[in-house]
Amino acid sequence: MNIDTNARYRASHEYARKDGAEIVAGISDHAQSSLGDIVFVELPEVGKTLKQGEAFGVVESVKAASDLYMPMSGKIVAVNEDLQGDPALVNKDCYGKGWMIRFAPADPSEWNGLMDAAAYGKEAGKE
């Protein structure tokens, strides 16, 4: 299981990584591998404001579909348009080219409530 040590995590397997004042989010390697080949990613409109824990999109494989939840509250500033044409990027490089959204956090202190890599590794290992 590959865990980006610079990122923090929700128990529902979304990661959040700081990039300047903004946050880049996607799903963890553990999540992409248990979903299998991803066929579609639905992402929110840029400019939308969402609360922590609110669904920002959906990721689909052939046999399953999962909602994607905001790791922190914030306003969407960009979504990864490449995923429309090539959703497999999430399987190939979930922390890099397979990122999903970039948002401006509304409450940066929410970061502290997320799991760090070690805690997430333990949590995901249980499944």
Partner: peptide
């Protein structure tokens, strides 16, 4: 495109 359908998505 079955992920739209009830046998996979259930209440959603």
């Amino acid at each position: 495109l079955s992920a739209r359908e009830q046998h996979i998505r259930r209440e959603k």
